[in-house]
């Protein structure tokens, strides 16, 4: 799995081609809810350091795809290969340990805990101490706690949040809460991170900062990013590959330029938006 070793951002492009095997593959993925097909026949391939987008109108099934990728929902059909290994039958927690982390459309922080503790929870499987150490506060507890604290602060600092470490997570402004969710997900040291509408509710300057951060995540941690987003300029500027869903089905796949010119997409998605304006 991708290690959290900083990769120099210059010269990253040649290095990216070292490992050609995709980090994530899905084959004909589909799910029914009580006989109703919500998502059907999704086949995706995502490279190890690729930034990809999953877009589509409201209710298209984007979040449902994320829920299948993380085994929150068990897919009715199809297979998911994470780093070449099938995830069928695994729990959400096990899939995370296999290398997939995510954020949520409706923010899900541990809102009564401090910012620092939220990130420490993310480090759960990265920095371990056993139950005996937990109960006695000895036998490696101090060392593990210090290590967790240092790593958590390091990660927070990466997103200029170190000064908020002691604040209660629920009391943070909206944008900071979204950033904290990303930090917490990164703390699990994933090979791919899924972001569900990371720019929702952000103003243009926050969105610009977010785009910069997503690039930095890819460059620094050398991992893949798959994001759901309604902000088209963000998607078109950031993503190398885009997949468009409508009514649970893939209607187009390709580079931003290809997507922009695809008539089916304009019809289903961009066209609708124009009408609404």
């Amino acid at each position: 799995m991708t290690k959290m070793v900083p990769v120099p951002s210059r010269g990253i492009i040649p290095e990216r081609d070292v490992d050609k095997r995709p980090i994530l593959e899905t084959h004909h993925l589909g799910i029914d809810f009580g006989g109703l097909t919500a998502v059907d026949d999704i086949s995706l391939t995502i490279g190890r350091t690729e930034i990809s987008g999953l877009i589509g109108p409201n209710g298209a099934g984007k979040t449902t795809v994320f829920n299948m990728l993380t085994n929150v929902y068990q897919p009715t059909r199809g297979t998911i290969l994470l780093d070449g290994k099938p995830t069928a039958g695994k729990t959400t927690a096990q899939v995370n340990r296999m290398g997939i982390a995510r954020t949520f459309q409706n923010i899900r922080l541990f809102s009564n805990m401090s910012v620092l503790d939220n990130v420490k929870v993310g480090l759960h499987n990265e920095i371990k101490e056993n139950l005996f150490a937990s109960v006695t506060h000895a036998f490696g507890y101090v060392k593990a706690e210090r290590k967790a604290r240092e790593r958590a602060l390091e990660l927070l600092d990466f997103f200029s949040m170190a000064d908020m470490a002691d604040a209660e997570a629920g009391s943070l402004p909206y944008g900071a809460q979204r950033r904290l969710e990303i930090v917490r997900a990164l703390a699990t040291n994933p090979g791919i991170i899924l972001l569900d509408e990371p720019a929702a509710g952000m103003n243009p300057s926050e969105t610009a900062e977010l785009m910069e951060n997503i690039r930095r995540i890819r460059d620094t941690f050398g991992i893949a990013v798959l994001l759901i987003e309604h902000d088209m300029s963000l998607v078109m500027n950031l993503c190398e590959g885009i997949c468009v869903l409508d009514h649970g089905k893939v209607i187009a796949k390709g580079s931003p330029d290809e997507i922009k010119q695809n008539p089916a997409v304009i019809e289903a998605y961009l066209g609708k938006k124009k009408e609404a304006e």
Binding site: T91, A93, N96, A101, F104, F110, S111, N112, M113
Partner: peptide, 16 residues
């Protein structure tokens, strides 16, 4: 505590 606060989020960061 993470499980109490938000089970789904706790699972998503690999907690059994």
């Amino acid at each position: 505590t993470a499980i109490r606060d938000n089970r789904i989020a706790a699972e998503s960061v690999g907690i059994s």
